[in-house]
């Protein structure tokens, strides 16, 4: 990624040195990384909203309104994945590393894969 804004569902206060939340809909905050010319330009955080059953479009709209281009998740349901795609946010996948910084660096370097439809949570597809 040369330019854009990355969002990472995060635990606690978030930030580049923080850890990733396992379920994006229930995360405390989103860490937002602004990338310019392939470099981290700015790090900010965005408070997540109340999560209610069926309300998975709330974070989709939240990140869309904050002009996010890419999201990194450890797991995601089919509906929010489709929602992110429909608002033009690419969803990347890493379910191995808890730290934020290395997955961000991998995404910027083009080393992180986008999540596929068969990697979503639920419906026997695994978590």
């Amino acid at each position: 990624m040369e330019n854009g804004k990355i969002a990472i569902p995060s635990n606690g206060a978030g930030g580049l040195g923080g850890t990733r939340a396992g379920h994006f809909g229930h995360c405390d905050v989103f860490t937002l990384i602004d990338v310019e010319n392939g470099e981290i330009k700015e790090v900010s955080t965005l408070q997540n909203q109340e999560h209610v059953q069926g309300g998975c479009m709330v974070p989709v709209n939240l990140l869309s309104e904050n002009r996010v281009n890419a999201l990194i998740v450890g797991g995601i349901g089919m509906r929010p994945l489709m929602g992110f795609r429909q608002v033009g946010i690419d969803v990347y996948h890493d379910d191995q590393r808890a730290e934020i910084e290395p997955v961000v660096k991998d995404l910027i370097a083009g080393k992180l894969p986008q999540i596929s439809n068969d990697q979503v949570c639920g419906g026997g597809g695994g978590q």
């Binding site: 989103f30 900010s44 955080t45 909203q49 209610v52 709330v58 309104e65």
Partner: peptide, 22 residues
């Protein structure tokens, strides 16, 4: 009622923007 609740949450977030921490 449930749809209204979700709509309220959506409206609340209209003013929420990221906070810089770097």
């Amino acid at each position: 009622d449930y749809l209204n609740r979700i709509e309220q949450i959506q409206q609340q977030m209209g003013t929420i923007k990221g906070e810089s921490n770097r």
